[in-house]
Nucleic acid binder design. Structure first.
Lengths: 146, 146
DNA sequence: AACTAGAACAGGAATGATTCTCATTTCAAC
DNA sequence: GTTGAAATGAGAATCATTCCTGTTCTAGTT
């Protein structure tokens, strides 16, 4: 398990005046162990003994700390993952329009550079302060194309 | 106003055994006249006299026909726009994380080509049938960065 | 080791965008 | 102009998410 992860998270939590409690740590561990974003329901199921209301509340707090962020796919559920600032891994998502599953993937660095250039240009052209980007590839996952 | 638009939509509707009624046409017109996706509430407000339940139901039907599609931003509202198949204009979105506003923009064709190449590669690598992509630039719009 | 004040928690109720229901109205074809 | 199916209108229902409230835990102090 990544030793620096909890230190980084603890620092961000205390930075906004919040404690890094056992329950919050357990959420972060589940997210760190999963290779893709999870729905709130999946997190509730995975963290037996943490009630739903606490899971939601802590996801909100972790979100304010910049530890966790929300991923929207094509279904009605919001998904959560550790933020790039914490994992150090910039990535994008494969979204299945059938079952709603979301999986991570990394884009080639050339493409990322093109996107960065585009973001700068948009700032200049439109007065929009571009901060980040989302690139989702939408289609049908291997499980659903049977 | 685009004369071919309604013909195209009518064809798609009858293709799935649905009528292209006055109310549905009025929704399509509002969407065609607006340079960006609209929330359901905005559509209800813009189409005075069409009740909310009908707006939602017709958006769902137009979605099945491939005429309209859903856009998710950063706030809790789903937005709707005419699909690329109907407008012929491939584009992406600028999303303000402050106010949630969504605006269209076109990416340079070189970037689009890189994304297409990437989508093909993903199909080969992972068995994911890539059908389309979403590229959103997230930041702060000019109105919100005062 | 107990005290205390504030934070976090547990459980359940409330919220609100979206979807569903069903009685009524419209439409298209005969 | 009748008829049967589809669309509409109004409101109720759904359900992921958020809020509320009383209780429990924690960190810092003596």
């Amino acid at each position: 398990m990544d030793q620096g992860l909890h230190g980084e998270v603890a620092g961000r939590m205390s930075g906004i005046g919040q404690r890094y409690t056992r329950g919050r740590r357990s959420l972060v561990e589940v997210l760190a162990d999963t290779p893709g974003p999870l729905t709130a329901a999946e997190l509730v199921a995975a963290s037996a003994s943490i009630p739903q209301s606490t899971v939601y509340r802590n996801l909100a707090v972790l979100g304010q700390a910049g530890v966790v962020h929300r991923v929207v796919g094509t279904d009605e559920f919001v998904r959560y993952e550790l933020s790039e600032a914490v994992t150090g891994r910039h990535h994008h998502h494969l979204v299945c329009r059938r079952c709603g599953a979301v999986e991570d993937f990394a884009a080639p660095s050339g493409l990322e550079r093109s996107v960065t250039t585009l973001m700068d240009a948009i700032g200049a052209d439109r007065g929009f302060r571009a901060e980040t980007h989302r690139l989702d590839v939408v289609g049908t996952c291997s499980g659903c194309s049977s």
